[in-house]
Amino acid sequence: MSVLEVKNISKRFGETEVLKDVGFSLEKGEVIAIIGSSGSGKTTLLRCLNFLETPDGGQIYVNGEILFDASNHKLLTEKDIRKIRLHFGLVFQSFNLFPQYTALSNVKLAGELLAKERSDYKENHKTILKEIDENASGLMLQVGLTDKMHLYPHQLSGGQQQRVAIARALALSPDVLCFDEPTSALDPELTGEVLKVIRALTEKNTTMVIVTHEMQFARDVADKVVFMDDGFVVEAGTPEEVFGHPKQERTIRFLERYSNL
């Protein structure tokens, strides 16, 4: 059974159709890389998965259960949407760490707020908060920032900030972790450390959707590659198929442009 199944997602902003009938599915532990030029709809697709945008059409299934159906989404309350969102994590291109919290507190904040909604919070809050703290410290170790976890975002480099953002997204143990061009805002010498962290996640069987311009990276870590253009999925397959033997004219042209860079 697929962890994530996206069916016929469409989205329009005013007159512009940004996503047209986009679909893909993902098994547990799989990594899917979404490639394509700017404006092809990749980012909008991720934002739809995280409900920062509401799709105009289509369905989203997680673990075989229907999470979202465009035909009756008006019935969803803010509470429902919050619950749905917790199935997904999102790492932004621009990190979006909360500047007034230390790295560690950035990772802990959402978990602490959610814990307050638990019915046993009053009795067990010490144990619960301790668990959250230990989990967050463990994640900081995982992204290699234990020695920096008490620093504020502005005291960290871009690469370090993005690693904190990854830890923050992992803290709520989402079923699917999404990355929106995680290295695009970084200096070239800092992309390596972030890619290394993402690569390490693939070994932990983390299910991921990665929108990226790092073609070599996509080829290395992805189980599936989707090439999008103009809101369509033009071509999808294994990295070998899409990168090695692209069938569509548009895919070939896109990849050529990249290899010429």
């Binding site: 920062l52 919050r82 979006n96």
Partner: peptide
């Protein structure tokens, strides 16, 4: 305040 701040809060399941 950049829009990304509240979006980061939203995807982490926070209320408005």
């Amino acid at each position: 305040v950049p829009k990304g701040q509240s979006e980061a809060g939203q995807v982490l399941g926070m209320t408005s």
